[in-house]
């Protein structure tokens, strides 16, 4: 096909849009992360000055350095925040899997008539506000909240236990809001599973449990992997959950970045935090995409 005008426009418009509003901003972050903070507006230097021509570009590049990254590695706050984010995300992903898998399994075993409404019920929370869903837990978990009221009333505890503003609350919030992301891909693989495979396994001498272990679980692996990535990746950069449900000791990098930017106004450090966060995420993202590709090949 020739590069005619309509085709050029069709490709060009979304392409330029994404270049300008996705790639260029990212390059700017990269550049600022290599600059120094100054008390000015904007609060960083050097700024690219094209009026000096080529020399300006050279001085611009010569003034960039990795100072912010060195600072990042020296201040224990940052790397602790990264490690803590990964840890929280990993633990939360595990819990989500433990709850999400049985749910997806039960859904795939429901009768035909029930499956569509059940699927709808899983998807529906997607459409309701994320913020509101997290907010709903604040009233439940607080010292005077429903859980404490219930436990006090039953006499299990004598004074309120503190759940809100702890890591426990953060885990509950993550599992709650990310559960559909885990259930949907697992359900999709289980739903495609041919029931006669299990019958064949039992016919060949498996017990129901070993058939589940050897056949169902193995074949659901791509779905489980996809679900785990879909929870693990975004949770690392999560901001809303730790800031509403977490406490002062909940350390997550999304919140650190937010505070660095809005509270400290240290743009270069905030940018360095962002760039390094992305580097960390690169590995799971690549793994995730490989998993998806493998699955797509299987479907062919």
């Amino acid at each position: 096909m020739q590069m005619n005008w309509p085709r050029k426009l069709l490709i060009g418009i979304p392409f330029l849009w994404l270049l300008a509003l996705f790639l260029v901003p990212f390059l700017i972050i990269l550049k600022i992360s290599l600059s120094d903070p100054v008390l000015a507006i904007p609060p960083y230097s050097p700024r690219l000055d094209l009026s000096n021509g080529f020399e300006g570009i050279i001085t611009f590049f010569s003034e960039l350095d990795f100072e912010n990254y060195i600072f990042l590695s020296e201040d224990s706050l940052y790397w602790k925040a990264y490690i803590s984010s990964i840890k929280i995300s990993a633990i939360a992903t595990f819990f989500t899997l433990m709850i999400g898998f049985p749910l997806a399994y039960a859904m795939s075993n429901a009768s035909e008539n029930w499956r569509t409404p059940l699927l709808m019920l899983i998807i529906l929370p997607f459409w309701t506000s994320f913020l509101i869903r997290i907010y709903s837990w604040m009233g439940i978990l607080s010292n005077t909240g429903l859980i404490n009221q219930l436990l006090l009333w039953m006499g299990v505890i004598s004074e309120p236990i503190i759940i809100l503003n702890t890591n426990t609350a953060v885990y509950i919030g993550i599992v709650y809001t990310y559960l559909p992301f885990m259930v949907l891909p697992i359900y999709a693989t289980l739903d495609r599973l041919d029931g006669s495979l299990l019958e064949a396994a039992q016919d060949l001498g498996c017990t129901r449990f070993s058939a589940f272990w050897l056949v169902t679980l193995r074949l659901a692996k791509p779905g489980i992997a996809a679900g785990c990535f879909l929870v693990f990746i975004p949770v690392i950069g999560e901001f809303v959950i730790p800031s509403l449900l977490g406490g002062s000791r909940t350390l997550m990098i999304g919140k650190v970045l937010w505070d660095e930017f809005f509270a400290n106004r240290d743009w270069p450090i905030a940018s360095a935090v962002a760039v390094f966060l992305l580097l960390i995420l690169l590995i799971p993202i690549v793994l995730f995409q490989r998993n998806e590709e493998k699955q797509r090949e299987h479907e062919r």
Partner: peptide
């Protein structure tokens, strides 16, 4: 590059997208 720019924002942490656009 094009398909990369389509899929990357789906997994990009919001804080990074927000910060980068603001800086732009």
């Amino acid at each position: 590059l094009f398909s990369g720019m389509i899929y990357a924002p789906l997994v990009m942490p919001e804080v990074i997208t927000g910060l980068s656009l603001l800086l732009l």
